[in-house]
Amino acid sequence: MPETVPNNHRRQFFGAGIRGAFLFVLGAATSLFARYTQKEKMVWQIDPSKCVQCTNCATKCVLQPSAVKCVQAYPMCGYCKLCTGYFEPQPNRLNTAAENQLCPTGAIIRTALEYPYYEYTIEESLCIGCAKCVKGCTLFGNGSFFLQVRHDRCVNCNDCSIALACPGHAFKRVPASQPYLLKNREHQA
């Protein structure tokens, strides 16, 4: 069929032209993005100054238990005998009995130091990131308890489901080389 030959040539020519145009667009887009890119991976983190202790971190994470856990900033801690992050608002007695504890999983370990100081340590394997202790500590204490996304657990979803639900808009992406937004004494000032 002699007629189909030029037709096929034309089709091939158009095909090659459009392919070339696409390749050019892809190349141009890549080089355009090269300007915006960075070598580093970004990871999710909580800005402690924006956290409102709403308990969403414990429930909204795709992991169970959550990738968010409480951490203790020892330089900020008051080592109080009556720790409002550790005890229920009206504790029966200031001891380690379960009914006095705020933490639903008993993840805070209270150790007596020199009287009247007590050290509070988070047992991270038990912590579920509910922020009950953070709320207590921030309201009446020095605010040394705060939440952080633990990167040994976080699967780094492209669209963090806690970030979606966070009322304080406290979740943000940070460079993987500086993955934690820690509180310290300067932060307090």
């Binding site: 392919r19 696409f22 390749l23 892809l26 887009a29 890549t30 993005f33 090269a34 915006y36 890119t37 960075q38 070598k39 580093e40 991976k41 970004m42 992406r173």
Partner: peptide, 19 residues
């Protein structure tokens, strides 16, 4: 917001191969 290089590669490589 800037994309990491790896994400860019994940976006563009399959497109170029498909072309």
């Amino acid at each position: 917001y800037s994309v990491p290089v790896t994400v860019l590669a994940f976006f563009f490589l399959p497109l170029i191969f498909t072309l």
